[in-house]
Structure formats: structure tokens, C-alpha cells
Design a protein around this nucleic acid. Structure first.
Lengths: 226, 226
DNA sequence: CGACGAACCGACAGTCCTGTCAATTCCGCT
DNA sequence: AGCGGAATTGACAGGACTGTCGGTTCGTCG
């Protein structure tokens, strides 16, 4: 057996603090997302890593500090991914659709992000208030949306009076619900959110809902259809 | 001091099993909503009542059974309240607005309902699946919405092709987000969801979003404007 | 090659929490 | 009055979990 490996996660070399830290963070993300802050067990996190519980306290000083690190990484994840969007070259209508689509798909691909934010709200937002960089980290999305709105208004395709933060909230809300509540809603109303056709349908519906909300409404029904 | 009181909650008589049970249920609702299933402490629930921890195990056999009872009551609460709506005498457009408005206001007035459902989803919906009557309990809302949709289509004010469950999900999603995520979203984007003007604005926006989604779109923009 | 400090580990102390039990009080009925 | 059973209580057993500590290993740098 090779004693040294090429730096991938599965066979990383021992005494690699960067990798250990990342390993713990990854494991903790899974555990906190699955069980929440109170439900998560530091022991369970340790078992998901190649290290021990003592190492977790060595790298992160407490369970809560680890949780804050996990939450910050989660926010960084979505905001970074959003920066990969290139909306500037799209007509406003398509830019809106792309933004909605991206958000919807991101939540679906990263339910742990949704779960972590849910957990934080369950704690009354006690921890996010102690995270220094978190507000600056999240500023980008509002700018992105404001840009699209301004351009669409110049184009004459989007109406005036839409607040960027409110649009962000609307887009988030529509995509959020079926991830955050998939277990209760799915069970009560027999909706299978794992089914690909259902997901497609929901994505299309949400894009439509948002479009109907932001489109310019003055023209005699020109844009009302579709 | 009077040894007997008139049966209200504050001064209920001792040895009143009905009242004790209700007292525990009420206290447990608060605790589970505030801290989730794992975060809730049976001791803390007991302290919120006029009884002791042992009584909780006497009336409900376990923490989880108590939690299930609380969750069922919470669902019953919103479904019962919905039955108080009288949508049949309203034109479909107003019926939709009333439905959205009601849902939005209910979530605002009963954040503990939102919190409990959030908690249940955090547990993967493990408990709701064991609740016998819960599905039947929730059937009413879909019927209500289906009725409004059918009537609106006959009136010619609502378009065809809107699925009742999907409309329910859309309405719920839009109202849900700002309650479920008020701490994170409120902090990150400096939005005060306790401010009355903000709430009014959000209610109006959500009504508009839903209306634009369900309205008949064929007529040349007749209904597109406000 | 030797020493130093970072990385790592096993075990333990202390606390908290759930669920149970034996014993007691109280109400309603005879 | 007193009996039977429901309601209520305090205390405890048992288990689980967090955070810490003393000691050990290992890479690196002089």
C-alpha cells in the first residue's frame, strides 16, 4: 500500500493540517445539515472524518465555532456560484429566467445549504450575527439583481417599481419551499420531489411566476401571454 | 385567597386532567417551536406548565409522542382556521386574494406553526409519517383551492391549467419564506419583518404575484394591469 | 542528527437529560 | 366514613454528550 497519495481526499497524507481542517468542515456540513445544531453530535462528525473528536476542538475551538465556519462556507458557496452566472449578455427576460433557474437548481443540488440556513433560523439567527464577513459576502446577489432590473427597465421589458431585495426574496421563496418542506409537503400531498418530471415542471412554473411579476405590464397584453 | 377559580387557565382547579393535558400541550408547542425537537427540553416544558416532568410522561408517554400531538394540533389549527373562510360568495379574483392574504397573515400570527413544520422537516418527516389522521386533516385546503380555480375558470377570470396543489404550494412558499427565514434574511438584507409597513407591502406583493400567475391571460391585456 | 513545535490521540471529568418508580394525595362514589 | 382509582410528586438510575488534558508521534529546520 502506498503511504503517500496524490492529495485527493480519499488517500490524503497524514499530518496535512489543511486537509484535516477541510475534512472536518466537510463532515460537519453534512452532520449539521442533517440534524441541526442541537441534533448534531461532535462525535458523529469525528466519525465522518479520518480524525478524532479532539482534533475538532484543536482546529475549531468549539462546536458552535465549527458550526459558524460551516455556515459561512455554505453562504460563500452559493454566492460564489452566482458569480459564475453571466447575465449581462442576456436580454433581461432571459436573465431573469436564468437567475430563477439557477437559484432553483442550486437549492436542489445543495439541500445542505437550505438545511443549514433553516437550522440557523431555528436558533433565532443567534450565530449569523456573530459572523463578521457574512453580510459583505451576501451583498453581491442584490447588486446582480439590481443590474438586471435596471437593464430590463431601459429595455422596456421589465416594469419599474420592483425592489431588488424583494425580487431576491420572491425568487428564493419559490425555490426554497419545496426543498425546505419536501418531507412534510411531499408526504401530505403525495408529491415526489425526487421525480425529474416534477422538478422540471416546478422549475418552469417558478420561472413563469417570477416573469409575470416583473414583466412590463403597460403594453396591451403583448407580453402577458406565454 | 380563593382556593377554587372559575376554570380559566390562569387559576384552574387542581386535579383537572383535561386542563393539565391542554396546559402541557400549550407549553410544549412553545418549546418545540422555539428549539426544535432535539433542542427542546422536557424539563423546560414542565417549567412552562403548572405540572412536573413526570406528569408529561403520564399524559403523553414520551417526548416524541408529545411532539407528534403538538404537530397534529398545529396542523389542525391552520386547517380549521381556513374553514372559517367564506370564499364561495366572492368573485374568483377576490377569493384568490383572500386566500393568499389569509395564508400570509396566518403564518405571521402563528410563527410557531411554521417553526414546528420546519422542525419536522429537519427530522426528515420521520414523525409525520406515523400520524394517522394527518393526511385526511390536510385534504381540505386542496379542495378549497380546487373550488376557487374551477369557479374562476367558469367566470373566465382564471386561466386553465393551474394545478390546485401547485397553487397551494406557490401561495404557501411566498408567505412561508419571510417567517421561516426572517432571522437570516432579515439580518443579511436589513429587512425588519416586525415593521408593519413592510408586512403590508409584502402581503400586497404576494397577492399580486399570485394573481399574475393565475389570471386568465388570453384577453388582450385586459387583466394584465392592476 | 537532534530538538522543537505542530499535529494527533485516548481517556476522563463533569454535566445534562430522559424516562421510570415507589409513594402520596385527592376526588367521587358507595 | 372509607374505599378505589386516578392524578400527582420527588428522587434516581442510566446513558449520552461536550470539552479538556496529558502524553505521544512526526515533520522540519538548524
Amino acid at each position: 500500500m502506498a503511504k503517500r497519495a496524490t492529495g485527493n481526499a480519499a488517500m490524503r497524507k497524514p499530518r496535512d493540517p489543511e486537509a484535516s481542517r477541510a475534512d472536518i468542515l466537510r463532515a460537519a456540513t453534512g452532520e449539521f445539515a442533517a440534524r441541526g445544531l442541537d441534533g448534531a453530535r461532535v462525535d458523529a462528525i469525528a466519525r465522518r472524518t479520518r480524525t478524532t473528536r479532539a482534533m475538532i476542538y484543536y482546529y475549531f475551538k468549539s462546536k458552535e465555532a465549527l458550526y459558524r465556519a460551516v455556515l459561512e462556507e455554505a453562504y460563500r458557496g452559493i454566492r460564489e456560484a452566482e458569480k459564475g452566472l453571466d447575465l449581462a449578455h442576456l436580454p433581461a427576460r432571459e436573465a431573469v429566467a436564468e437567475l430563477v433557474s439557477f437559484t432553483f437548481d442550486y437549492y436542489h443540488a445543495h439541500p445542505e445549504f437550505v438545511a443549514l440556513v433553516v437550522a440557523e433560523n431555528q436558533s433565532g439567527g443567534r450565530h449569523i450575527r456573530r459572523m463578521q464577513r457574512i453580510r459583505r459576502l451576501n451583498a453581491s446577489i442584490v447588486d446582480t439583481i439590481a443590474d438586471v432590473l435596471a437593464r430590463g427597465q431601459r429595455e422596456g421589458t421589465l416594469r419599474a417599481g420592483v425592489d431588488p431585495i424583494e425580487l431576491h426574496m420572491t425568487i428564493a421563496a419559490l425555490g426554497w419551499f419545496e426543498i425546505a418542506n419536501r418531507h412534510t409537503f411531499g408526504y401530505l400531498f403525495k408529491r415526489d420531489f425526487a421525480d425529474a418530471a416534477t422538478v422540471e415542471r416546478d422549475r418552469a412554473r417558478i420561472i413563469d411566476v417570477v416573469w409575470q411579476y416583473v414583466r412590463e405590464r403597460g403594453g396591451a397584453g403583448a407580453d402577458a401571454r406565454r
